[in-house]
Design a protein around this nucleic acid. Structure first.
Lengths: 153, 153
DNA sequence: TAGTATATCATGGGATTTTATGGTATGCAA
DNA sequence: TTGCATACCATAAAATCCCATGATATACTA
């Protein structure tokens, strides 16, 4: 099994005229042991792209399968929203992926992409949006200390 | 066994005058290791076509068998409605399947088909209907964040 | 320590392959 | 024969691969 399995750091890369972006080398290293692809989808709540390994989605698929009924409306909706939007992105020998118009426009990305590590997943932002978001998060954190809702495990 | 066994993404393809549609390349890649065919049937609950591998139907058959009484009315109905409707669809060397009138009219598809990945299966929609459905689902999801009944890890 | 070689990385551009899709030809059964 | 399913070929657009370059970081050495 892989030791380091956390997407970290914030990296700014260019999106070229074809829509290609280099995946940060660190991110690639995480994935490379298993495959040469990542999964991306539009964030439900923010104007950004979310990315993760297929492994993570696999796990999610199993969770959904085991916790919801095959014919239930919930299973139906949940699978549409997750798998209907997600897509595999193979990265080439130079480490680039070709993002789709759908994803880019959702995140308002034109020529610059900001990769933000989030542990098991990462996000891709337009740089102005990310600046605002980062500000917001840090202010929030100062006001109310984050909590993991412990007490339970 | 195959690693990537999840139907994902939403892709729009044309249905030609003969009723032929290209199965998205990604979908083909999933199936191709095993065979060159998929199984399709009319959705029980929505105006769309559902598709999957035969493997999944196999599993479903087992599930039905074990969770419902052999002589029950439910088992009877369920098996009729699914296996009575399902059919194998071979795809040709260019990756196209020929959908039947029964399926197309159930989904109100004429010249455009929207493939929606749903993990272990996928759906095929008429584009206006899908747009409405997607809207509904995303609104719903924003209101009540989907949950898998976590609390555990 | 300063200077040089080496490796890695991001990025541009062109060549190649894949994919979707239209059309035509062939085989088969009502 | 006619209608329908299957197989085959052709093409344009899009995705992918491959090579080249400049920049940056790392290691090596005098």
């Amino acid at each position: 099994m892989r030791r380091n399995f956390l997407f970290m750091d914030t990296v700014i890369n260019k999106v070229d005229s074809k829509g290609r972006v280099s995946l940060p080398a660190d991110y690639r290293a995480i994935v490379k042991d298993l495959s040469t692809e990542i999964v991306c989808y539009r964030s439900l709540t923010s104007p950004c792209i979310e990315g993760c390994t297929e492994e993570l989605l696999d796990k999610l698929a199993v969770d959904i399968e085991t916790s919801l009924d095959f014919f239930s409306q919930e299973q139906d909706d949940l699978t549409s929203i997750i798998f209907g939007d997600a897509r595999r992105f193979q990265f080439d020998s130079t480490g680039r992926v070709l993002l789709t118009e759908k994803l880019l426009s959702h995140a308002e990305i034109t020529d610059t992409a900001v990769f933000v590590g989030k542990g098991k997943k990462f996000q891709i932002w337009n740089s102005e949006n990310w600046k605002k978001e980062e500000d917001r998060i840090r202010k929030e954190a100062l006001k109310n200390r984050p909590s993991l809702g412990k007490g339970d495990k």
